[in-house]
Amino acid sequence: MFLAALVPAMLLAGGALGVGPKQLGADPVRTLLHSCGLTALNLLLITLAVTPLRQLTGWNNVQRLRRMLGLFAFFYALLHFTVYAWLDQGLDVKAIGADILKRPYITIGMLALLMLIPLAVTSTNGWMRRLRKRWQRLHYLIYPIAILGVWHFWWQVKKDIREPLLYVVMLGVLLGYRLLRAPLRRLLTSRCGSATVRERT
């Protein structure tokens, strides 16, 4: 899994060096920028899919992958920002600052990246122990981060919103599952309960 998550980065690095199957095309900076951003978003959604997958299938092993997937999402988001700041903007601090303040889609993307930092830092076993219950609360930040990430994607598209729409739907399913799971279970158990009662009478 570790190696699989590194494949996109290796393909892009290969493309930048002119080796391997991935070609960066006429505008390599844009290709790097978008590929890193999309990979971050993909990994973020995959991370969010781990818990539902475990609950629905009972495969408890997948839970162990969640931390690594989340850290890789952070890794690609950081690469995405690095490509933007360095290759696209040439480390022009003034231009980057103006962009972050003036361009709402960059503002929210930056916000999502900043929010990922504490999650990455506190991802170790030590921090989990130290923070206990607060760790869980802190890591609920992943939900607003994912929403901001998808929004960031949506907002920079010129006209064809079909692809960001797909991400909205996937995120909607992943978040909707969490919102509806508890009430649905309650509903199901209470139904079963009343059925049993009726049988007894």
Binding site: A16, A26, D27, P28, V29, R30, L32, L87, D88, Q89, G90, A95, A98, D99, K102, R103, P104, Y105, W155, Q156
Partner: peptide, 23 residues
């Protein structure tokens, strides 16, 4: 006059030299 969502002050010239070409 910027596009509402991005700056029009600079542009990236396609092609030519390297990944590190300045806008």
């Amino acid at each position: 006059v910027d596009h509402p969502r991005w700056s029009q002050a600079t542009e990236r010239h396609i092609g030519g030299s390297s990944l590190f070409a300045k806008r």
